[in-house]
Design a protein around this nucleic acid. Structure first.
Length: 154
DNA sequence: GCCAACGTTGGC
DNA sequence: GCCAACGTTGGC
């Protein structure tokens, strides 16, 4: 099983929103970056663990764990002109964007802030911490995942 | 609100 | 194919 980190702005969709969602599950829609798209389509698998990361907020960091419960399928929000994530170039017959479903797993005993991760030498080469990183879906190695879980008190 | 770091778009 | 302009992300 692999580990992933997925970013969400809590004002848009928070970990609490996921916990309160129907079946505590949501589709991870709206990813409009090709690198992230390819991961969602081809690499994210059922049962994988997701680190739920809050971005653009008071204390950015990993706030909880989720699990992948449905593998990549077309992101239909790209087909609807009324939607925020509409993309006229995505054709239902040849979808450009993909999403997965994730399910709430647990909160972490301690929020793992971005600052904490930056201070952790064992995370020095973690992609999230690289300058200018803007990917909203990131692979997390087993080694990095173990460190994050340790910092989280899991 | 500022700004660095990208990604995308479109003229040529 | 190049590259300037523009838009977005996201920390601070």
């Amino acid at each position: 099983m692999a580990y992933w980190l997925m970013k969400s702005e809590p004002t848009t969709y928070s970990f609490a929103d996921l916990k309160a969602a129907k079946n505590q599950t949501t589709s991870w829609e709206g990813v409009r970056n090709y690198q992230a798209r390819t991961m969602l389509r081809d690499r994210v698998k059922n049962g994988d663990t997701v680190f739920f990361y809050h971005s653009s907020c008071d204390e950015p960091g990993v706030v909880g764990l989720a699990r992948v419960v449905r593998e990549g399928y077309p992101d239909h929000t790209a087909f609807d002109p009324g939607q925020r994530y509409y993309d006229p170039k995505s054709d239902p017959d040849k979808p450009r964007w993909f999403m997965v479903d994730v399910k709430y797993e647990r909160e972490v005993p301690r929020l793992v802030s971005l600052a904490m991760m930056r201070d952790e030498p064992r995370l020095a080469d973690f992609a999230l911490l690289r300058r200018g990183n803007r990917l909203s879906v990131l692979p997390v190695s087993d080694q990095h995942a173990a460190v994050i879980l340790e910092l989280a008190g899991v």
